[in-house]
Design a protein around this nucleic acid. Sequence first.
DNA 1: CTGTTAGCGCATTCAT
DNA 2: ATGAATGCGCTAACAG
Lengths: 346, 346
Amino acid sequence: MKSKYTTIIDIAKQLNISKSTVSRALTGHPNVKEHTRKAVMELASTMEYQRNSLALGFSKHTTHTVGIMVPEFMSTYFPSVIVGVQDVMQAAGYNVVICQQNESYETEVANMKLLLSYRVDGIIVSHTKETRNFDHFTLAQRRGVPLVFFNRVPDELNVPNVIVNDYEAAFQAVEHLISIGRRRIAHLAGPDALVNSRLRRQGYIDALKKHDIPYNPDLVLSYDLTTEKVKIYMKHFLDLGTPPDALFAINDPTAIAAMEVVKAKGLRIPHDIAIVGFSNDLSAGLVYPGLTTVAQPTGEIGRMAAEMLLQELNAKVKNDYSIKKAPTTQLPTKLIIRESTVAKTN
Amino acid sequence: MKSKYTTIIDIAKQLNISKSTVSRALTGHPNVKEHTRKAVMELASTMEYQRNSLALGFSKHTTHTVGIMVPEFMSTYFPSVIVGVQDVMQAAGYNVVICQQNESYETEVANMKLLLSYRVDGIIVSHTKETRNFDHFTLAQRRGVPLVFFNRVPDELNVPNVIVNDYEAAFQAVEHLISIGRRRIAHLAGPDALVNSRLRRQGYIDALKKHDIPYNPDLVLSYDLTTEKVKIYMKHFLDLGTPPDALFAINDPTAIAAMEVVKAKGLRIPHDIAIVGFSNDLSAGLVYPGLTTVAQPTGEIGRMAAEMLLQELNAKVKNDYSIKKAPTTQLPTKLIIRESTVAKTN
DNA sequence: CTGTTAGCGCATTCAT
DNA sequence: ATGAATGCGCTAACAG
């Protein structure tokens, strides 16, 4: 099968020189006569030569391409991290391939195999909420493909990662609720399998403890991050004999879905129930009332993850994280106070 | 340089058979003894054999991978189209690689070259707002790589595409504003270079005409889709001697930014000014008041675009759109009426 | 400065 | 049912 793409052989034939010379001219090798180089460049341009990265990666065992795997991208969190990653990687001469898992473990495994089969040089990952088995990640490591995790970092793996202090951020968020006089604070938590979900819950618990508010398990529900469940669980909270006067939600979509339930029931936010989310999704500033939430430096998270991956890629001797501790970068969060906790005083 | 990846040669050596046999076993060729096949499969599994797609695509001139290029993904529009594309393409056995242009023409050209250099089999595209030159698209066509456009489809190119009836949808949206008694309807339009921007503006103009409302150029501004500009232009509208009593915005982010300006000025929505957006972004239902907007079937757009691309890929004889008309699919829109045009009657 | 050659991993055609 | 040989496009080592 003859491809429509121009090859260096086509160029070489036309110019009556060897393909090596063409290759050298094209890659900017010093040992090429200026005249020859110019001729090659010109012909390559008119013939619209398009380098075959498959052949190149195939023969060089390196593709100058990295993958980024995210569990979903319907919130603004992951897209803005991706933009940060692209910034840094492209500046460093790498291509970035984006894979989206739709929160499906199977898709995650399939995408990992896809990236490996295309021999990407490294991968930046945030795993799905379903992921319990991490063999596909260790496989990459065994193949010498460095990984950098962010946001959802498995406890089970010793890998370089970029995180925020979920525990501390949650602690502060709940302290804020306490500071505005709330005592019956409910928490809609994420799946226990997610480390950041566990950390945020612990921050919640410890903040209560610090302020001598007894921990009430009835006010905490872990759920699978689907909107329908929020409605059910939130209704359940509101139907309690003594309903909560505040809610700390695992993330902004959860908080916003909960707000809908509260408003539908005719309760006022924050008067009857104050609400805090997490991540400062774009929509947090748009909903009514504005959602108090923990801002994460998404672009910076992406850039840092990319920097860390570059470190791995450029290491003269590959880091072996089966024998030494993997580096971690912790970035600061910031509590953004809006009207869902503090009503505007006009 | 020795790769850490297992190859069919490794397997062949261990089993003392030829790599041809291994290849046949792995690809499910009929002519392999059951015993041999089983041995190969088992060893491949224990050695964690990972097929080298580079080598395969390289020798077969086909990669079973398609690209999708989107101008941005901070709104929910493009991500949900992508999910639709992935649905169909993955079911058809194709891999999907996502590229994001950040609304930059240069990035678009670079990403196109990236995809071509990786020899993707086809590409689904929505171009950036900056794109005026389409050579990178015709290049793909000349290379025999089929393209399918959606949302932003260049007039200049005869290519398969999936669209909605922007003209009709805009017409209806404006008629809705007229039906609630508005006569001074402003329009924040997008760049003229975008076909759908021009169509929406024409729908706006013709709806006015139909209802004998004189077209007032002072009430129409085309802009570059950056939030800062919305603030400036919207303020300008509101400062007019007779400010508009309604706004039809090119898209939801524009409408939402405009709402902020209106609210900051102490005006009421929809009482003083009614607002309509376009695309039914997730945030349209979250802002206060809820934004009336034109819903687009995003998932279906992605699925259709993928179906059309599969048609091209499976065509026994390549369609030559320099001599015949490219197919187009038009999907229905739906005006979603919320409180930004019709206040709730409690 | 340039040409020749080997080799990357795989499917495939041609032998056997 | 299996092995040997070929070619895909490119870079780099080697030879001049």
